[in-house]
């Protein structure tokens, strides 16, 4: 960290965490709170505009750092960035045919739930919950895969894990959004 500017420190250093894919989330949260208590603009409500601006920039930085390290995909992307590999998630896509096939099947299952939630004997929310659980399990495996590739310095492999993780994250969001919509429909 540069002497006069926390904005120049990397996210791990900021929270006094080792640069590693395995992050102690409890410690992250504790350090986050500590920094917020020091830097938040509310601590400078009576200070000069200059100090207020600085505090706003610094808390924005702390917030971004926390959001990045908390999220398994963003954290992975950030680690590779620290190693000189820039990844634009929008443009990344995996070519693993087997994986893509699984993704298609998953989308079809979701479509089935969407279409039939009103006239099926299965509880659509329970079905979605079990899909979410499957997704979570395979995400955990992929995170493990990333951690190993990264630790071994195999950044090409690590990058491939990120592409797959990103797919899974999107799929999880879709499952949650669908569950929310179905829940609203069923309740009203």
């Amino acid at each position: 960290m540069s002497k006069d500017n926390i904005l120049a420190s990397n996210f791990f250093e900021l929270f006094e965490l080792p640069v590693s894919y395995d992050v102690d989330l409890t410690k992250l949260q504790q350090q986050y709170m500590k920094l917020q208590k020091l830097l938040h603009p509310d601590r400078f409500a009576n200070s000069s505009d200059q100090q207020k601006r600085l505090s706003m920039q610094q808390t924005s930085w702390v917030n971004e750092a926390q959001a990045t390290l908390k999220d398994p995909v963003l954290r992975a992307v950030y680690l590779l960035k620290l190693n000189g590999i820039d990844i634009n998630l929008e443009n990344e896509t995996t070519m693993d045919a087997g994986f893509l096939m699984q993704q298609l099947e998953l989308r079809e299952r979701l479509e089935q739930v969407r279409k039939n939630f009103n006239n099926t004997e299965d509880d659509p929310l329970a079905v979605l919950e079990s899909i979410a659980k499957e997704l979570k399990n395979s995400m955990n495996e992929m995170m493990q895969g990333f951690a190993e590739s990264y630790a071994a310095g195999q950044f090409g492999n690590a990058r491939e894990w990120i592409r797959k993780l990103q797919f899974m994250k999107k799929a999880t969001n879709e499952v949650n959004a669908l569950a929310a919509n179905i829940e609203d429909e069923l309740m009203n």
């Binding site: 002497k3 006069d4 926390i6 006094e16 350090q31 000069s48 100090q51 600085l54």
Partner: peptide
Amino acid sequence: VARRMNTSIKTAMQGHSIDEY
């Protein structure tokens, strides 16, 4: 102003210097 804020951060982070870390 910038130096002050950084000093207070360092002090708060359990006493040891972030630079070293």
